[in-house]
Design a protein around this nucleic acid. Sequence first.
DNA 1: ATCGTTGTAATCTTCTTTGATACATCCATA
DNA 2: TATGGATGTATCAAAGAAGATTACAACGAT
Lengths: 144, 144
Amino acid sequence: MQISSRFTIAVHMIICIEAFKDTHKVTSEFIASSVNVNPVVIRRLLQQLKKAGIVEVKRGSGGADIARPLDEITLLDVYNAVESVDNGVLFHFHENPNQLCPVGRNIHAIMDSRLQEIQTAMEAKMRAMTLSEIMEDANRLLEL
Amino acid sequence: MQISSRFTIAVHMIICIEAFKDTHKVTSEFIASSVNVNPVVIRRLLQQLKKAGIVEVKRGSGGADIARPLDEITLLDVYNAVESVDNGVLFHFHENPNQLCPVGRNIHAIMDSRLQEIQTAMEAKMRAMTLSEIMEDANRLLEL
DNA sequence: ATCGTTGTAATCTTCTTTGATACATCCATA
DNA sequence: TATGGATGTATCAAAGAAGATTACAACGAT
């Protein structure tokens, strides 16, 4: 199973908003064309990023902007904003292990802390990557 | 999106096989009862673990065994054995970014190495956890 | 008042996971 | 060597998630 494309789309969106902020009105339609998905998908993600305080979206006149400094937005912020399923628990545990079996009764006690540790390692890596670094790389590649 | 329960089920299975090896014939039916899923789900996973050289399964007479020392089986081995989707790539990337847009054209160059780095951090953590450590914890909890 | 845009609901398709049934194949052993 | 308990695997169904698409009310600058 994979982490859904919402995450990579969201990062793509933020890069677009920042890269084109001076030259275009960055609407859901505009972003959708760069990402190559339906504009409604973009608007839904914009709402999630807005709730997380990452972007601002203007009704009426239209267009999206970054809501706070890029070095205060980490990949983990973006991930949590758009990928929030089941309270952010990465591993899906089988639902009803048999409590009458010693293993079934203790499987959570055995595994939960380890699964959490793995998830934490991944999140720490994401927290260490800011959109500001990513934008520096992007600007080097985008000769606009 | 979450990592499927196949992973936690597979670990549960291995613990069962090891914990009951001296007292029971550990059949798919037996394991299914502990995990509380359909026996066919267990058999399918047993096949995947077998292909990975983690367990041995006896036809005819029935029963499963661990195929190699527990300290040579890591959580990453188990994860890769049962969770192998899309060549083990964790993040699903949106399929067709617009090549006519500078951002769409470069999004992979910008993100691929970072996504890989995150995945690698997670895998490193899983590689550091062996079934032998897990079994030690399990044995402490299972007064059989 | 108009027009372009956002916010959001509703529906549809596709894909993946898991559950379940069925049955051919296998193998120890009686 | 026939049998009975298991495995190996095909097939289908059910449920859930993701994403595509259409539709339209609400908004706000002009």
